[in-house]
Every structure is written in structure tokens, then in C-alpha cells.
């Protein structure tokens, strides 16, 4: 059974993952905006997209279908968090 997450906790986990794995090279990476496009900012590339998907699946114990791997779902910390929230709500029924 999936653990329950508050939205704020999801965002915190996602932010930590992004900064730890991708944004460490930025000056003041902690100022990375939630709505900042990770691709446009040059923080993630195509391999990073796949790593994000793997992270979401393993961290939150959800399955992501191929047709869900869309820019709108993974382009920013905010959109990733919302995508995870939707997935978890769907699983919880």
C-alpha cells in the first residue's frame, strides 16, 4: 500500500532529488524556482528525464506509463510534484 504524502512533502522530496542529482553545479541552486523549466535552464537532458522517471517510480512506488512521460509532467519541480500527487491519488482510489 502506498504511503500517504502531503503535497509539501512531495515537493520537498522532489526538490532535494533535483538539486542533489542535477542542479548542484548551479550557483545558489537552492533558489531554483519551483516553476522553473529544468530543461530550459539546462539542468536536465534526455538522460535526466529517464532518471527522473526511475526516481518517481522507485521513491513513490508508482508505475509511469510511457504515454505519461510528457514535458508538462516533468518540466519543473512544481509539475513533477503535481504529477506525483495525481498518480498517488489515483492509486489511493
Amino acid at each position: 500500500m502506498n504511503k500517504f504524502y502531503e503535497s509539501s512533502e512531495i515537493k520537498r522530496i522532489v526538490r532535494e532529488f533535483i538539486i542533489r542529482n542535477f542542479a548542484y553545479g548551479l550557483n545558489n541552486s537552492f533558489h531554483l524556482r519551483d516553476d522553473e523549466s529544468l530543461m530550459d535552464a539546462g539542468i536536465i537532458d534526455s538522460t535526466g528525464v529517464i532518471e527522473i522517471i526511475s526516481f518517481i517510480e522507485s521513491e513513490f512506488d508508482v508505475f509511469i506509463a510511457l504515454d505519461e512521460v510528457l514535458p508538462e509532467n516533468i518540466q519543473s519541480i512544481e509539475s513533477i510534484s503535481q504529477f506525483i500527487g495525481k498518480k498517488l491519488r489515483k492509486v489511493a482510489g
Partner: peptide, 21 residues
């Protein structure tokens, strides 16, 4: 470092990846 050997990206994702580079 992925768990699944077979994946398929949506065309929007491919375009976004390619646009960046």
C-alpha cells in the same frame, strides 16, 4: 541506470530533448 530495458518516449518529449541540445 534504468530498470526497464524497453522504453518509448512521446514525440513531445523527444522534441523537448532535442530542442535543448
Amino acid at each position: 541506470g534504468i530498470p526497464n530495458p524497453l522504453i518509448k518516449l512521446d514525440y513531445q518529449m523527444i522534441l523537448a530533448n532535442e530542442k535543448q541540445i
